[in-house]
Design a protein around this nucleic acid. Sequence first.
DNA 1: CGGAATCCTACCTGATACTG
DNA 2: CAGTATCAGGTAGGATTCCG
Lengths: 123, 123
Amino acid sequence: MLGNPYDRDCPTRQLLDRIGDQWTVLIVGALVDGPLRFTEIGKRVDGISQKVLTQTLRSLVRDGILTRTAYPVIPPKVEYELTQLGRNLAEPLELLDRWARQNMDQVKAARAAYDAENAATAS
Amino acid sequence: MLGNPYDRDCPTRQLLDRIGDQWTVLIVGALVDGPLRFTEIGKRVDGISQKVLTQTLRSLVRDGILTRTAYPVIPPKVEYELTQLGRNLAEPLELLDRWARQNMDQVKAARAAYDAENAATAS
DNA sequence: CGGAATCCTACCTGATACTG
DNA sequence: CAGTATCAGGTAGGATTCCG
């Protein structure tokens, strides 16, 4: 049982709002190995726009998942790093990732089977 | 490290597409205790519209996460039940849920602190 | 009861251009 | 380099209505 995630403002729900944005998990994953600069993250998380990256990073900082450190040098340098809370979050995320690796082909198969059957009956 | 979830079509990314829709996790959570009928799920997952519930359920069936069983009785009765794959997915999900319960207040605190500081400097 | 079909809106997002 | 600002488009999602 996942508890009682059926009232709109339970923790689970809020977490889903947070990680459900598709990018949070990837960014957190990109930072587990150590701090990265803005552009570095953008390169790792392929497909993210600079705007969304900015937004997501800021909200993660706001949530205490990671810290932002700006070095006042002439070519600006800003580093993002996971907080303890963030590293903490990375663990269950990694389990999810493992599930994905192990079962995603099964999902694909199920999907193909479903579509095949569906196309057949759609005559 | 979350692996290499940075190419657009890795398993992790696909999983995020699946569970990132905000409702999947809640529906799966609602079904861990046993099969439920359409309306039952709708009641448990507060706030979901009938349309989205239908969509999400169907895509979950398609992905092999759960099964749909329609009983041909006069008041229609349809039950949804987790497959093994689905029960399997529920485990890492539960860990995430646990994280949420344990840390969401910390996130809230960080959020409040951030906002306070932000309002102060926004003069 | 368990959907399907339609309409309509809000937000999320990407693309682009500009700034310190 | 690391953002901010603006605008346009697509789409997830809600509300409503009707069907088997």
